[in-house]
Every structure is written in C-alpha cells, then in structure tokens.
Amino acid sequence: MSGTVEQGARGLDDEPPEPVLPGGAEASAGRGDWAVVVLLLALGAFLAHGTATMDVPENSGSPGPRFVPVIVTVLTFVLAALMAAQVARATRGARAASEPRPAPAGEGTDWRAVGVVVVSFLAFTALLSPLGWLLSAALLFWGTGYALGGRRPLFDAGVALSVSAAFQLAFSAGLGLALPAGVLEGAF
C-alpha cells in the first residue's frame, strides 16, 4: 500500500514528516494523469453498456439490480470530469510557470521488464496443466527473476527449480493438496 503512504501523514500533522518511501505518490494530479481519465471513461462506458443491456428478471423488486450500477456509473463519469479538470489545470500551470516540473508518471518506466513478467505469468498460466506445477512455476520464477535483473541464467534456473519443488513438496506431502503434476506425473 505504498501509494497511500505520504498522504496520510500530510493530512494529519501540520509539519509533514517526509518519509522516504518506495513508489511514493504525487500529491495531486499531474500531466501524466490523463491515463487515469481514460481509464475512468472506459470504466464508465463499460458500466453504462452493461447496465443498459442487463437482463432484469421479471420478479426483481424495486430498487432492482440496475439501481446501484447506475449510481456507480454516474460517479465514475463525474470523477472523470473532475480528474480531467485537475489534470488540465496542472498542465496549464506547468506551461504558465514554464519551469521544469517533475516528469509525468509514465516516464522512466521499464516497460520491457514489465512485459517479461507479464509474459512469464501468462506462460505459467497456459503451461500449468500440461507441464505441471514444477516446471511451469520454475519458469515463472526464472522469468520474473530475469526481468528484475538476474543475470546468471543457469544458477537462477537451479534456484527456480528448487523453489518450485519446495512448494510442491510442502503442499502435496505436508498439507495433502494436489498441485498439477503434468508431464512429470508418475515420475515420483
């Protein structure tokens, strides 16, 4: 929950302590926050479409199943507007002051590393039943480790296999829960 970190401190004490925390959030909207507006609009559109096309059973009383979704949809669009106003103000402020503002949140993102983690996780999901826990979890471990800067592939592969084997042992032998064995079925 590092996102909420400094925020609590600020509201409650008049001399804000500045804890140095990982992933600390900017206080109010910045120029990079257009993404949040887009997210809200997409969410609002999805909710509106879902509410409009919902099959309402005959006997559902009043207020029915659409009641709360309508409230949340309206809330989402109102928030999108408020957020857009804040971001626009921040952009204008930055232009007027023409001073170097802190970089928008999107910059400095290592998208390649994020991509490797995502692909590893998807591969894990797809391979879990055919390959079994041992190999697919080892692959997930290795892929994530690689994305985060592990540069000793063979050693890391050994660690990955030991970790996933340890989990399988703890779960199957210790707790009697079955994890998919996959191609190694019967090997033990």
Partner: peptide, 15 residues
C-alpha cells in the same frame, strides 16, 4: 537477492 525475492513472491501469487 532482490530478483529472487520478487520471483518468489510472484510464484506465491500464482500458487
């Protein structure tokens, strides 16, 4: 090492 730590957390998430 940091990359092993987070790799382990990811495996825990999957599990």
């Amino acid at each position: 090492p940091r990359h092993h730590l987070y790799a382990g957390i990811t495996v825990c998430c999957g599990l």
